[in-house]
Each structure stands twice: as C-alpha cells, then as structure tokens.
Amino acid sequence: DKPVLAIQVLGTVKWFNVRNGYGFINRNDTKEDVFVHQTAIKRNNPRKFLRSVGDGETVEFDVVEGEKGAEATNVTGPGGVPVKGSRYAPNR
C-alpha cells in the first residue's frame, strides 16, 4: 500500500486524457498538481462507459505517495457523489 499523505482533499481537474486514462488535479489547499489515473476514480458517472473526470471539474480525493510523487486515489465528486466525467467519454 502507498503511504497516505492527505484525505478528503478538494481540487480542480487541470486536464484528463480519456484515451490514455490519466490526468492531473490541482489541489485547492496547496495548489499542487496531483497525478490521477482512471483506476483511482471510485464513483464514476453511471451514464459514462469509461471512468473519467472532466476538465475544470471539482473533485474530492485522498492523496498517496506514488512512485513519481503525489497521486490521487478514492476520487469522487464533492461529498462522495459520483464524478461528472469528461465530455469526451462515451455515454452508455
């Protein structure tokens, strides 16, 4: 398990590439950019086929120490709701 650095952090999605399945979230508290992989998205938009977060979307997440620095995990919308997802992700 990766060491946990912070829990229930709010941030804004800087960018997310649906095809490659990753992007970055900017933390509201430290203004640090945190890597996010599609496997870290815990509550996906049920209408979306692929797990994703949308550019500019506000999300809540935990921060863990990854191999290359801070990574987001347990990604949801604020308060644990499903994320909205990327407009580029296909609908079901």
Rank of each mutant, 00 (worst) to 15 (best):
A70M: 15
G56R: 06
G85M: 01
N26I: 15
K84Y: 08
E71M: 15
K84E: 10
S52K: 02
A89M: 06
A72D: 00
V63W: 00
V75L: 05
N91Y: 13
N44C: 10
A89G: 07
K84V: 12
P46M: 07
Y88Q: 07
P78L: 06
E65K: 15
Y88W: 13
S86R: 05
V4G: 04
E71R: 12
R47G: 13
V59L: 07
E57Q: 04
V75M: 01
K48Q: 09
G66D: 05
N28D: 12
K84T: 09
T73Y: 13
K68R: 13
T76V: 07
F61E: 02
V81W: 09
V59I: 04
V53I: 14
G66E: 00
T58N: 06
E67Q: 15
F61T: 01
F49V: 13
G11D: 05
K84G: 08
G56K: 07
G85I: 02
S52L: 03
G80K: 06
V59F: 02
N74H: 06
T30A: 10
R87V: 12
V83C: 08
V64H: 04
V59S: 00
A72L: 01
A70Q: 15
G56N: 09
R87K: 14
E67D: 13
R87Q: 13
D62C: 06
G56C: 06
V64P: 01
D62Y: 02
E71T: 09
F24S: 14
E60S: 09
V75C: 02
P46C: 07
G80Q: 06
R51C: 07
D33Y: 13
K84H: 11
V81H: 11
N91V: 12
V53Y: 04
E65M: 15
V75P: 02
R51Q: 08
N28Y: 13
G23C: 08
G54N: 09
T76A: 05
V13G: 00
P90W: 11
F35Y: 09
V63C: 03
E60D: 01
V81D: 10
V64L: 09
F49R: 15
G54P: 02
R87Y: 10
N45W: 03
G79V: 05
G54R: 12
L50Y: 11
T73E: 12
G56L: 03
S86T: 05
G80H: 04
K84Q: 13
D1V: 11
D62F: 00
E71A: 09
V83L: 06
S86P: 03
P78H: 04
R51S: 11
V18F: 08
V81G: 13
V36F: 09
D55P: 13
V75R: 00
T76K: 05
R51D: 05
K48T: 05
G79K: 11
T73P: 04
V83Q: 03
G54W: 01
T30P: 02
T58Q: 14
R51K: 13
G85H: 02
N74P: 00
A70G: 07
P82T: 08
G79Q: 10
T12P: 05
V83R: 01
D62T: 10
N44K: 10
L50D: 04
T58W: 05
G80T: 03
G66K: 03
K68G: 09
G11C: 12
Y88I: 05
V63F: 00
E65A: 15
P78M: 07
G56F: 04
N45E: 04
N45R: 03
G77W: 05
K68I: 07
V34G: 03
E67N: 13
T73Q: 15
F49N: 12
G23D: 08
